[in-house]
């Protein structure tokens, strides 16, 4: 990736601000709703650019421990899914569920961090 400014993250941020500050207030109905949805999607991209790399690394490390093999994240996840379906025992005690909960926590953190804080 080029190191020139604006960075990819800064470009995405600029487009999100454009949608939120300039498009949204000037359109109505379905279009306004979709502008908000689009801005939210870009916020996911921004969070992924900032935090996704570290999350992937941690997930792959946990998977290598759990499965006792090497491979990239997609291969490892395919293998994990296949072994869960086959009913195989994976890891010790609650290690599998613990891994899945950690992984989905990260996914929600990227997709919709507010979901993790209850409102009442």
């Amino acid at each position: 990736m080029p190191t020139d400014r604006p960075t990819a993250a800064e470009l995405v941020e600029a487009v999100r601000e454009f949608l939120t500050d300039h498009v949204g207030p000037n359109v109505e109905g379905q279009l306004a709703f979709h502008a908000r949805v689009a801005a939210n999607a870009l916020a996911i991209v921004e969070r992924t650019l900032a935090e996704g790399g570290a999350m992937d690394q941690a997930e792959a490390e946990r998977l290598r421990d759990l499965l006792g093999r090497d491979g990239d994240l997609e291969e490892l996840n395919r293998d994990l899914s296949r072994r869960i379906r086959a009913g195989e025992a994976i890891g010790d005690g609650g290690a599998l569920l613990e891994h899945l909960r950690r992984t989905v926590q990260d996914k929600v953190q990227l997709a919709n961090p507010r979901y993790l804080t209850p409102r009442d």
Partner: peptide, 12 residues
């Protein structure tokens, strides 16, 4: 496309 990412909430 955006609703696709809500699957993470239900998985959670």
């Amino acid at each position: 496309a955006a609703i696709g990412r809500r699957a993470a909430e239900t998985e959670h």
